[in-house]
Design a protein around this nucleic acid. Structure first.
Lengths: 235, 235
DNA sequence: GAGTGGTCTAGACCACGAC
DNA sequence: TCGTGGTCTAGACCACTCG
């Protein structure tokens, strides 16, 4: 019977983590069930459940009904990235934000974009190209397609003052989004807009979003060299 | 009084999300407090709390004591990435995994690495260079420094059969880790090992890990061109 | 001071899934 | 089958913080 200082779920979580870190419970090992731990710690089972659920969500424990809870074999697998609104990102560092729309046209989307969005018919698409600047230096090149069938009001929206991302956030609900990140060599045109050498390595964030199965938008954000995505993981 | 089909916290969450998506509750708006929602839905306050807490963790709601709960102004900001153990990643796609240690030496870490790890003294560091192959093709180049003060047993460990990452997972606890992702142009040496053209854009994942304030390891994983990190966000 | 979310409790029932 | 985690309830107290 190990009484904890306070019977909070955080205290339970800390004690469980301590036992994992000290290898008292090793990766792959089963740990006692909730009822036993509750008795040991002198708290309610719901409190133990809250603590263990939190650790399971963090990938440190693996839980299954009937077979119980085990220490995960490969923890440390999950990273939570903040994908900030670009304007907030720049302003948050105390830099000046500028936005410039450099291309706008309506027409059919290229095959690759249509595939990513899962477009069936050949409905009209709005194509926007814009650049976001930090302290007047190009920071991100945005290449976006908007499905006008899902966002008809976008056709008459003015994207010269407000970025499409912010307009969409305010006007179109989103139910699902897919994100992928890759390194690419800047094309000559991308390099020209970003003011870097052709072929420079740039980070591309590609996001496709849906509203209840209706594809809304597909955007590629090409970040100038030196950009880093970062996150801290407390285990 | 709106009775839900079943009084599960998932049902409450779904109904709250529906009201947000339909703009019944708009970004920035306050929503009713937990007690009122519990009465409206005919369930316990704890159930409402569970649902709202989940939405807050997902960044869709913002909660503060006393001032209540509001619909977040800028949702969709958080992406959870899986950073898989490389061997699992490759084997999970049904490909053959191979690992080759191509460099091992003990000595002082370069200034950049020392800074990232927060090394104070000039203790001995173990430097490992290895390549991970998928179907015999280079997949990831690993450049790792291990702080022997924090992991003395690493000095005598055999890293020719087991990757350092897996050895560390099994032998050294981790309490905190920092992660950053960037696009870089492959150096001539990186390009040679990966079998790509010098200057090719490659994705670098840089991770530093600590065990209770003691820096353990600093690793740069350089992924061959074409590699994508991806995640799906259900809102 | 007072209203809000945060949490704990004790008990109960249920769904899953290993055996 | 039956032990495990998953969840709901009703009530209670507390911590934070706005006015």
């Amino acid at each position: 019977m190990t009484a904890l200082d306070t019977n909070t779920w955080q205290a339970v979580r800390a004690e469980v983590q301590r036992r994992i870190r000290t290898r008292h419970w090793k990766p792959g090992d089963p740990i006692p069930n909730e009822a036993d731990l509750a008795e040991e710690f002198g708290c309610a089972r719901a409190t133990v459940n809250r603590a263990l659920r939190d650790l399971a969500e963090a990938g440190i424990l693996e839980r299954k009904r009937r077979s119980g809870t085990r220490v995960a074999l490969h923890p440390n697998r999950r990273a939570v990235l903040d994908i900030p609104v670009i304007r907030k990102d720049i302003e948050g560092r105390g830099e000046t934000y500028d936005y410039r729309l450099i291309g706008r046209e309506t027409g059919p989307a290229p095959v690759g974009v249509g595939l990513a969005m899962g477009l069936t018919g050949g409905g009209p698409q709005l194509h926007l190209v814009a650049v976001h600047l930090a302290n007047r230096v190009p920071y991100v090149l945005e290449d976006r397609w908007i499905n006008l069938a899902a966002a008809p009001r976008a056709e008459t929206a003015d994207f010269t003052g407000q970025s499409a991302n912010e307009w969409l956030l305010e006007n179109i609900p989103v139910t699902r989004s897919e994100l992928s990140i890759a390194a690419i060599n800047a094309t000559p045109e991308q390099a020209r807009v970003l003011g870097v050498a052709p072929g420079a390595a740039v980070l591309e964030i590609h996001r496709t979003t849906w509203n209840c199965d209706a594809p809304v938008t597909d955007v590629r954000l090409v970040h100038a060299p030196g950009y880093r995505l970062s996150s801290t993981v407390e285990v």
